[in-house]
Design a protein around this nucleic acid. Structure first.
Lengths: 248, 248
DNA sequence: CCTCTGAATTTGGCATACCAAATACCAACA
DNA sequence: TGTTGGTATTTGGTATGCCAAATTCAGAGG
């Protein structure tokens, strides 16, 4: 089964109908009802999100046939969805045992936060170089609104997600959709722990002054400083998790 | 199809045989001959690796049935493998058209190099804090060997992969397997372009002095400096690609 | 009452079949 | 000759069936 065996199909040369077709008028392929595969993927991912994986210490197992039934689909698309989630690191299909929802070790979580620090600080750097004044102003506005009026009256959960939104907003300023995608993925894993405790820690760690300073650095277009502030903050969170979170 | 529909199977409570079993002695599940799914995955990935995706401008399409035949397996495991590679961003299955090998735009490549810069510079930082003197010495030894004796006599290709190895070695010093995995993945995509030209640029960019400086910073345990050197170097590569590589 | 054995059952992996949608082909007509 | 309409074929998505491995369980033997 060498790679030689796999070649481009004879269809590599496209059909006329697809090659041309530029009349200025661009028509999108219609809705294209999503497949069971993607529905299963979404449903599983949601289920995993809402599940408190770290609630108990028992391994969490899922059953293929069971899921197919609940979804009203056959096993095939479910298995494909599982394969994808496995690739994403959320599941692990262990033969004869079932589909295991992967539990992260504390060390892994810390690595994730460190990677997050790397990506977000780079995003901050790029943002100082690329973001428009307006975009930065928007972030400031958002931060001001949510940091002043909402803090007192809303619950921790809301603050927590608003906090995440701040991070994400900052990352989006970099203009790099890759950085955004990668951090979103990391957030997903980190968030899965203990229903948001991590991000509540983040809140505790990040003073209003921290926010302020970061935005100031952005506005001053001081790349080094913005990068350092973001990195140090997130790395502090990692250290905090290291010493105060109990897992494994 | 709400997420409510998916629950933990009744098997969540494990069998005795699996719950206990901590005798310090850990026995791994034997070889467990790999499935067709993973074989197909490996074969496809290798094929994609060796394929010069950017050689022509024609979309590269693959055919499910064709692949199954060549592999001597049915479509099912192949489709699962494809689903995984799709998740990984290497393929895109477009309905009625075939399996498309994803071509990256120049902008995407640049984003990848920037993300790489973020991760590798963080790795450098962590390495200065955590790597043992011995480990750092090893990197120096490796670098010395390959930079002096091999440069003249070996071909570019070899230098290029040795160069990648240097990066990977540095990243491994951080002790973070996540950083390693993430950068490996980025390397994979970047490497796919034009058969190594990017890394040859990297070579051109990185003078022997660069190597030297980075290792010195590691040895001096100067985190800020190590981080900056690595970051700046890789970002320079990004800028270089931006202005000198022709894609799209 | 515990242990061991092997038969019954369950489970995941794979193959195959089927269907509807989409494409390709072709022939009749302008 | 160029279009057009309709038919044949291909293809991806899904369902289903089969099988071997692994687990469970019950009953025999201690």
């Amino acid at each position: 089964m060498s790679s030689e065996d796999i070649r481009v199909s004879s269809k590599a040369v496209l059909n006329k109908r697809w090659q041309s077709g530029d009349h200025g008028l661009s028509i999108e392929r219609l809705p294209a009802k999503e497949s069971f595969k993607s529905k299963a993927y979404a449903a599983l991912k949601e289920a995993i999100t809402n599940m408190n994986i770290y609630g108990s210490n028992e391994p969490v197992l899922l059953d293929e046939r069971d899921i197919s039934e609940r979804l009203g689909a056959s096993r095939t698309p479910v298995r494909e969805a599982v394969a994808m989630l496995e690739q994403e690191g959320l599941l692990r299909a262990v033969p004869r045992r079932g589909i295991l929802v992967v539990r992260r070790t504390k060390a892994e979580i810390i690595e994730m936060i460190e990677a997050w620090a790397a990506l977000e600080s780079m995003a901050a750097r790029l943002a100082t170089l690329r973001a428009s004044d307006e975009a930065i102003a928007e972030l400031r506005a958002y931060y001001k609104e949510f940091d002043t009026s909402r803090i007192e009256r809303e619950r921790n959960d809301d603050y927590s997600s608003a906090n995440i939104a701040f991070h994400q907003g900052l990352i989006r300023l970099s203009g790099s959709s890759l950085l955004a995608a990668m951090t979103d993925n990391l957030f997903f894993h980190v968030r899965a722990i203990r229903h948001r405790t991590i991000f509540e820690m983040d809140r505790a760690q990040r003073s209003a002054a921290d926010h302020q300073e970061i935005i100031l650095a952005l506005e001053a277009r001081d790349a080094d400083r913005a990068e350092r502030l973001v990195r140090d903050h997130t790395l502090r969170l990692a250290r905090h998790v290291e010493s105060h979170v109990d897992l494994d």
